[in-house]
Design a protein around this nucleic acid. Structure first.
Length: 315
RNA sequence: CGCGGGGUAGAGCAGUAGCAGCUCGCCGGGCUCAUAAUCCGGAGGUCGUGGGUGCAAAUCCCACCCCCGCAA
């Protein structure tokens, strides 16, 4: 049957949504009529305004962009209804969609979530997959309902975590995988060739949004856990600590199979390496950044800061 | 005018008015004691840019450029 293209609207804001948009516009049976993203906000060092990544891309592709402050207003609901979407695709928009909007498209709202639901429902699935030491995670294409990340599952794809997986590497993998999954499963679902199935709520786990303060390193935890913390929190909010009155960002670490008597939270020089003592095990610091300075390798740091060691770091 | 730190040798830093220094790297040589090698010697700097004050400015004053932390 020769169908007219599905009118589609996309909701999303950050970097993660970029490959998704590319996938979306690459599907010939879809007609992407608008992109909805968060409003521009004063950002950067001098409070200049910057557009979210999604807006910048949409403008390049000449797709109309909507940036409502509130999406639950009658005006915005009217606007969306006026575009007659058959389906709405969401990737990391970050807000719960009210039912007045959910009811509009004939085929509902489809979300791409960066975990194997029902595991890690919520706002920071990528970080928590690393923090909690998962051996695998993935992306889920799901039907949205009135509560967060609880809808029927359309398709899933797994990925094995690399041993040194960081937020950035995993984020990129999952974004790519998500766009592939969308390309492969969305149209079959719309055509009724894929049937969505419910999540098992009994095994659901949750993760809340990462806040700035979550980046603070607790030196009274095992070296392995701090290492995962660094990999999950970099680049935002960054794994940081305070030493000598300055914020120090820990950028790269490695767990050493050695111990040392220094109290946990001490930065010192040991066997030719810059190391931090933890609750159990030594953490090799391979790169770091002192407040007001550029990121430095361990070697560069030692050249100039060796005289300050050993240094107590507070958590 | 959001708050703050910084720009000094290839890299990382010290130096608040009086001959520009330290660690690493680099080049040359010694030694063979390996594994952070080590010892001796050496090269390498318009101290971000422009102006001002001073007998004298990396250092004090003014303007500008660039980098970074916070905040959002």
């Amino acid at each position: 049957m020769a169908e007219s293209p599905y009118n589609t609207i996309f909701f999303g804001t950050p970097e993660f949504a970029i490959p998704i948009i590319h996938a979306l516009i690459g599907i010939p049976t879809l007609n992407t009529v608008a992109v909805v993203t968060q409003p521009d906000k004063p950002v950067g060092r001098h409070h200049s305004f910057q557009s979210p990544p999604v807006k910048q891309l949409a403008e390049k592709l000449a797709i109309p962009v909507l940036q409502p402050e509130k999406i639950s207003t009658p005006e915005f609901v009217m606007t969306i209804a006026g575009l007659h979407p058959a389906v709405v695709v969401v990737a990391a928009y970050g807000k719960i969609i009210p039912e007045s909007l959910l009811a509009i498209p004939r085929h509902g709202w489809i979300n791409i979530h960066a975990s194997l639901l029902p595991k890690l429902r919520g706002a920071s699935p990528i970080q928590h997959a690393i923090l909690q030491g998962f051996s695998e995670t993935g992306v889920t294409l799901m039907k949205m309902d009135a509560t967060l990340d609880t809808g029927y599952i359309i398709a899933q794809e797994k990925v094995i975590l690399a041993p040194r997986e960081t937020f950035v590497t995993l984020h990129n993998k999952l974004a790519r995988l998500g766009s592939k999954l969308l390309k492969a499963a969305l149209v079959p679902y719309l055509n009724g060739k894929l049937t969505a199935y419910p999540q098992n709520d009994k095994i659901a786990t949750y993760c809340s949004a990462i806040k700035k303060q979550d980046g603070l390193i607790n030196w009274k935890s095992p070296a392995e856990q701090i290492d995962r913390h660094v990999r999950a929190m970099t680049p935002w909010p960054g794994a940081f600590t305070i030493g000598d009155g300055q914020t120090i960002k820990i950028l790269g670490t490695e767990v050493l199979d050695e111990t040392h008597r220094e109290p946990s939270g001490t930065l010192h020089y040991f066997n030719g390496k810059l190391v931090a003592s933890t609750l159990s095990g030594l953490l090799h610091i391979t790169s770091l950044q002192v407040e007001g300075r550029k990121p430095m390798s361990e070697k560069e740091f030692l050249n100039g800061f060796k005289s300050k060691l050993p240094l107590r770091m507070t958590s």
